[in-house]
């Protein structure tokens, strides 16, 4: 029974990480904008949802959604100045924003400072997470097969050509970033109501890097890959910890190496980059004589 609970717990965490990975994949994999602060948006979702539930006794689902909306709002605020430009300012801005946010959380009274917030009711369970994963992937997939999703990919492929096709690239980049932050906010809320205790370090730079590793490992621009990456990088540390607690000290060293090696040796990730929604399109009958 205890073992069973442990497995369920790991599975639940995998689900939360899947939401984080597929949402970062939307920003970095599909739209091509590197974000180094995805965990920050998770944190905003977690803190907002928790405070609503603890202080204002708002029910779980509205708290969760409001937390996600708050994360999206911050995503938008950060995205507007940084995504107007070509180049890689988003990476630095998200990095800086993450640190500022941590600073604020550490200093504010209402967020409990470094102690964080305790006594959150345990609401999140495997069923709720599974449902959330399904909703997130379903909606994300709908977006990606639509005009909006194709515009995201076009921006990644060639920003200038995308503009020449009439795509307002700034707005679409901000849109992708905001949606990504929204999903991360959901994951944060689920996280808070699972572990019942949050503090600023849960949502720091290292967590952001961990999420990035999931996406890179599975394959950038590939939802199935992000899912695989999330599962692998959730289970692997658990497994290694059971082998030797020492190894977990080397975890970040390994993550660093992983990013470099994957970029050089297999940038498309473990799964090749024909993601499933591409295949879905080609099955549809209208796709032309050449369709398989």
């Amino acid at each position: 029974m205890k073992r069973m609970n442990y497995y369920l717990q790991v599975l639940t965490v995998i689900g939360i990480n899947i939401i984080l990975a597929v949402s970062l994949n939307l920003v970095s994999g599909f739209t091509g904008q590197l974000s180094l602060g995805h965990a920050t948006f998770m944190g905003i979702g977690a803190y907002t949802a928790t405070l609503l539930a603890l202080k204002l006794h708002v029910p779980f689902i509205p708290s969760l959604i409001f937390g996600a909306a708050m994360a999206a709002f911050f995503g938008f605020i950060i995205g507007v100045p940084t995504l107007r430009l070509k180049g890689d300012y988003l990476a630095i801005a998200t990095l800086g924003f993450g640190e500022i946010m941590k600073n604020i959380l550490l200093n504010l009274k209402i967020t409990g400072g470094p102690m964080g917030l305790r006594g959150i009711p345990k609401v999140t369970n495997i069923y709720i997470v599974a449902a959330a994963v399904v909703v997130v992937i379903f909606t994300l997939n709908r977006i990606m097969i639509s005009r909006v999703g194709k515009s995201f990919i076009a921006i990644r492929e060639d920003e200038l050509a995308a503009e020449a096709m009439g795509i307002n690239t700034t707005n679409y980049k901000i849109l992708a970033f905001t949606i990504g932050a929204f999903y991360a906010g959901i994951a944060g809320g689920l996280f808070a109501f699972l572990f019942r205790y949050i503090n600023p370090n849960n949502f720091g730079f290292m967590k952001s890097i961990e999420i990035l590793c999931m996406v890179v490992l599975g394959g950038m621009g590939n939802t199935a890959g992000a899912i695989l990456g999330a599962a692998l990088l959730t289970v692997l540390p658990e497994f290694l910890r059971s082998v030797s607690p020492l190894i977990s000290q080397y975890r970040m060293v390994f993550y660093g190496l992983l990013l470099v090696v994957m970029m050089i040796v297999r940038p498309q990730g473990l799964l090749s980059n024909t993601s499933f929604y591409f295949r879905r399109i080609s099955v549809e009958k209208n796709a032309g004589k050449g369709g398989r």
Binding site: I209, L259, V260, M263
Partner: peptide, 8 residues
């Protein structure tokens, strides 16, 4: 991404 990897 490679650069961030080296840094980490």
């Amino acid at each position: 991404i490679s650069a961030i990897g080296v840094s980490i």
